[in-house]
C-alpha cells in the first residue's frame, strides 16, 4: 500500500499539471509571439541605431515596462481560466476524488501559475535588458529590488485572479484585473483625493488603500531615471504589503473554494 502524498508533494503535482496544461494548450505560442515582437524591435533598433545615452535609457525603460506588462498579462490570462477551465472540462472532479484537499489544489495552482509568470518575466526581461547598451548610470541594487518586487507582484496578481475567477466569468476577471493592473495606482490616488478637505477624507483614503497597487511594485522608471535604491525599510515594507495582500487573497480564495458547490 502506498502512503498518501504529503501536502508539498500534492502541490508539486498540481504545479506540474499547470505546466503540462501550458504546453498542451500551446500557451507557449503566446510567449513566443512576444519574444518574436522583441526580436523584431531589436532588429529595427539595430538598423536605425541608438545614437545617444538618452535614447538608450528610453529604450531600456520601454522594454522593461513592456516586460512588466506582458508578464502580468500572460499570468492573468493563464490564471483566469485555471479553475473555471477544470470545472468546464470536468477534469476537476477526478482530481478532487484523490486524497487531495481543495486547499492544496488551490495553492498548487497558485504556485504553478506564479512560477510560470516569473519564468515569463525573466525570459522577456532578459531579452529587453541584455541588448540595450547601458550608456547612463543605473543602480544595480535597485535592479535587484525591482526584480524581487516584480516577483511579488506576479504572486499577488495570481492570488487575486484566482479569487476573482471563483466568483466571476473569465472575461470579467480579465477586465477587472487588467484595469487594476494598469490603472490601480491612479484609481487609488484619484479616489484618495475624492473628499479632499472633508472630514471623511481620512476614511476614504483608508478605504482606497485596500485595492492592490501593482504600480507601487513597479520600479522600472525609478531605475531608468537613475534614482537611488529604496531604503531597507521601504523595500521590506513593500515586500510585506504585497505578501499580506497575497496571503489575504489566497486565504479568501481557499475559503470561497471550500464552500463552492461543484
Amino acid at each position: 500500500m502506498t502512503a498518501a502524498p504529503t501536502a508539498p508533494q500534492s502541490i508539486m503535482v498540481i504545479c506540474r499539471g499547470v505546466f503540462i496544461e501550458l504546453m498542451r494548450r500551446k500557451d507557449i505560442h503566446v510567449l513566443l509571439i512576444f519574444m518574436g515582437l522583441y526580436f523584431v524591435a531589436t532588429t529595427v533598433v539595430a538598423i536605425v541605431g541608438i545614437g545617444n545615452p538618452q535614447t538608450a535609457t528610453f529604450l531600456l525603460n520601454l522594454g522593461l515596462t513592456m516586460t512588466w506588462f506582458f508578464a502580468h498579462l500572460l499570468t492573468l490570462i493563464l490564471v483566469s481560466r485555471q479553475i473555471p477551465g477544470e470545472i468546464d472540462n470536468r477534469t476537476l472532479y477526478p482530481l478532487l476524488a484523490r486524497p487531495l484537499t481543495r486547499q492544496t489544489y488551490l495553492i498548487g495552482k497558485w504556485v504553478g501559475c506564479t512560477i510560470a509568470g516569473v519564468l515569463v518575466l525573466l525570459t522577456l526581461g532578459l531579452i529587453a535588458w541584455l541588448p540595450v547598451p547601458k550608456l547612463e548610470e543605473y543602480n544595480t541594487t535597485l535592479l535587484l529590488q525591482l526584480l524581487v518586487l516584480h516577483v511579488f507582484s506576479i504572486a499577488m496578481m495570481c492570488a487575486f485572479t484566482l479569487l476573482l475567477s471563483l466568483v466571476s466569468p473569465q472575461g470579467i476577471t480579465i477586465i477587472v484585473m487588467g484595469i487594476l493592473l494598469l490603472l490601480g495606482g491612479r484609481i487609488i490616488d484619484a479616489g484618495s483625493g475624492l473628499l479632499e478637505g472633508s472630514s471623511f477624507n481620512g476614511v476614504v483614503r483608508w478605504v482606497f488603500q485596500y485595492l492592490p497597487n501593482f504600480s507601487d511594485l513597479n520600479l522600472v522608471t525609478r531605475y531608468t531615471d537613475g534614482i537611488a535604491p529604496l531604503t531597507g525599510s521601504e523595500f521590506v515594507g513593500l515586500v510585506g504589503v504585497s505578501a499580506i495582500f497575497t496571503l489575504f487573497a489566497l486565504a479568501l480564495a481557499v475559503s470561497v473554494f471550500d464552500r463552492k458547490r461543484l
Binding site: 494548450r25 500557451d27 505560442h29 503566446v30 509571439i33 512576444f34 490570462i77
Partner: peptide
C-alpha cells in the same frame, strides 16, 4: 490556424 489565445494575441497586437 492557431490556438485561441495565440489568435487573440496576434489579432490584438
Amino acid at each position: 490556424m492557431l490556438n485561441l489565445d495565440a489568435a487573440i494575441t496576434i489579432g490584438s497586437l
